[in-house]
Write a protein that binds this DNA or RNA. Sequence first.
DNA 1: AAGTAGACTTACTGAAAAGTAAGATTAGAG
DNA 2: CTCTAATCTTACTTTTCAGTAAGTCTACTT
Lengths: 216, 216
Amino acid sequence: MDRTRKRLPRSVREREIVEAALRVFARHGYHAAVVDEIAELAGISKPMVYLYLGSKERLFVACVQHASRTLTVAFRDAAASGDEPELRLWRGLSAFFHFVAEHRDSWVLLHRQAPELSAAITDELAAARASVLAEVGALVRRGIEEGGADARLGAVDADFVAHTLVGAADSLADWMAGHPDETPERVALRLMNMIWLGMRDVLDGELWTPPPPPAE
Amino acid sequence: MDRTRKRLPRSVREREIVEAALRVFARHGYHAAVVDEIAELAGISKPMVYLYLGSKERLFVACVQHASRTLTVAFRDAAASGDEPELRLWRGLSAFFHFVAEHRDSWVLLHRQAPELSAAITDELAAARASVLAEVGALVRRGIEEGGADARLGAVDADFVAHTLVGAADSLADWMAGHPDETPERVALRLMNMIWLGMRDVLDGELWTPPPPPAE
DNA sequence: AAGTAGACTTACTGAAAAGTAAGATTAGAG
DNA sequence: CTCTAATCTTACTTTTCAGTAAGTCTACTT
């Protein structure tokens, strides 16, 4: 990648290796990712990767932690400011779309891995995903409480909404890739309007229910 | 798997191989999946897989086509019946959740693969995913039109809603795995209420917009 | 200038897994 | 019963890739 064959201190090189690994793991998935390719992308030879990061598995875990930390921080910072719950939710969603659009690899790394991997990796991924969902769930929960809902809706429902939002956002990130004119803010706004207005109605007690079957 | 070492006609054996491959590919992803494991699960030895299906890549494509066909048919059948657009949408979503819960492997195979695979596989996956989205999009579009919306909302918006629904449903399938008391119908109903009521408001012209920033 | 610690490489080993060659077994037709 | 075609297997070859041994090179200290 870089023609300047410069020697770098360990801390810097480690960061570069993790960044390169993030890209390769996201593009190919854990198993298909080749350590040699990661090394080449980092401008270094393979034994350096093993010297600094230990093994392919630990390198992957380091990537997951990096991606998870970055995403959580970006989201929390954006969602912390603002007085009204709607505003906070919108800012959080905007930040989320910004993140997913700009750091596509991190999101893909966390959410597009095959189910069965080693226990260490599975645990780390589960923790990272749970962290995102907890962040969104907390935001929704505060929105529901401060938005003036009665106590009918409990933790289960905030969790439900959080899953809905995260899943929708994931899918809409793909949609954005095919609509380059759309900004993260506009997408977040549209999603807001669908979810939030509907949720408000539901909180007000309005429900659509299917008609009973004619005969059974 | 089966102790009765019975010889089976090619057509039957092929079906069994594809079903076994579907499970293994879904669990491990394309690259980490091992053909020997697929063969063992199908109760057969590896060369049979190659004799009947040609190569690992073509076997995967066969799996994708199988999963895509099954899903599309199940969804279309369920969503075809019903007079009102809401009812059709609800039935379609219910069928979708049923499918994802019962044929988890098929869904995972289609939607949890690493981005960079061979051109043949990428194309097949893209076609399958587009097929699902087109199906959902058509349902939403009819719902919008017959639901009495003016013509403001065009194809782009149905597409947007379709992506939202599919993404949310994908994520909620995970959520369902941790809530075994929830039925696909109940989940579909809740999602309906969030999306449909919100969409109705949006179609009626009601919009939430963020307040302008204080100074810029 | 000499020594040394840390950054870095070439060149290997061993295991895993895609794909194949060559032939064994069995169900059914004549 | 015999022949044949289809089903199925054992036992390879070859490639790819994680991980390592055995150093070399260079920046910095004293």
